[in-house]
Design a protein around this nucleic acid. Sequence first.
DNA 1: GAAATTAGATACACGACTGTAGCTAAGACA
DNA 2: TGTCTTAGCTACAGTCGTGTATCTAATTTC
Lengths: 202, 202
Amino acid sequence: MGDDDSRTRRRGQELIKAIHDAVLEEVLEVGVGRLTMDGVARRAATPRTTLYRRWSGPVEVLLDALYHQHPVEEPTPGAGDLRGDLVRALRLMVEWAFSPAGRAVAAILTDPKSAALMSDALFEKVFAHRGGTFTRTVLEHYAERGGFPAELLTPVVADIGEALVTKRLIDTGAPPTDEDLVAIVDQAILPAIGLGPRASGA
Amino acid sequence: MGDDDSRTRRRGQELIKAIHDAVLEEVLEVGVGRLTMDGVARRAATPRTTLYRRWSGPVEVLLDALYHQHPVEEPTPGAGDLRGDLVRALRLMVEWAFSPAGRAVAAILTDPKSAALMSDALFEKVFAHRGGTFTRTVLEHYAERGGFPAELLTPVVADIGEALVTKRLIDTGAPPTDEDLVAIVDQAILPAIGLGPRASGA
DNA sequence: GAAATTAGATACACGACTGTAGCTAAGACA
DNA sequence: TGTCTTAGCTACAGTCGTGTATCTAATTTC
């Protein structure tokens, strides 16, 4: 049978994946504005002609890589541990934020020239729902089951956890510890849904 | 007397200011990674030699511009309107975020190559205290005067307002309305310091 | 095995940018 | 007025990246 190891060329999806991986690495090293076809090609160990056959520029390569490597794990809330589920959801968010795709998304969000290249499909898939998919899922789950008054779950409240994690990532560039995540849940999220230390004292 | 209007050349601070303004505009248009000496010079209507006499590259020009154009208004809390003062502080933050310097800071924060060029003085002045200077000032002011229990003012709580505004800015690219700011104060900050609707109902 | 497809390789012309050198002239100062 | 400083101007050589064209050879398909 065909022995894959003897092949010298990559074809089809294997090649595409290598190029996607390469552009996600390259953007981490140089940033969006310094992405070049040359750089991506070099990192992918493929000639530029191969890239130009499919994409017209490096940002398109990057956006395409994001489209295909975006799948993000969603939290799976249980039944009786809101606090624990919130911490786990935030941990999931942090893990994603430090993935190649997560870092690339962060870079694109501040690039003035990327928006013009953004397809509607990609925007819909990657950016439109970027916020609120981690803790919101957990909070909705528990609100539906009467864990706290559902009317307290406003767009602002749904965003608190992720907002604090996002800001922390921007401020320090380092992943928050589990203690940090617990503090965010206890000091900011739970009070906002009426489950803070003051509310339990009543 | 010297008539300023007849001069054909800018000198000293006038020239420096024009260059600073130019680089802050240029970075908004092309992003950090696409900044060039050529582009900045063109926009400042000055030759590159003039830039090279002072700076070795475009990011240095930008960082210098930030160092000198960073002064940010601080909130001036009053005596009896915590809620109003928090909303005003967040409004101040939004105004700064949309200033040329504010936007430049945002761009630099995601550029992989800018950190290496960052002087300690600049980091100290512009970035180290970037978070927590708006609502923290107000919250500390009122905590000291017994407006709410001081022990509730943790680093997490001090960050809530600005975190939510930051995330909103990232998510939409548009300035939050005053209604948005009021919602952030009422739904997230006040509950966290024990002054939410639930606490007053007790 | 032959035909089709396409990955990989090479080359080219061009533009933009870099960094430097050298010069002139405007402006400040004594 | 004379001197000094430096902004503005021009030119240059070199590098990098772009976009394209062409060809060969590896791989897949029939």
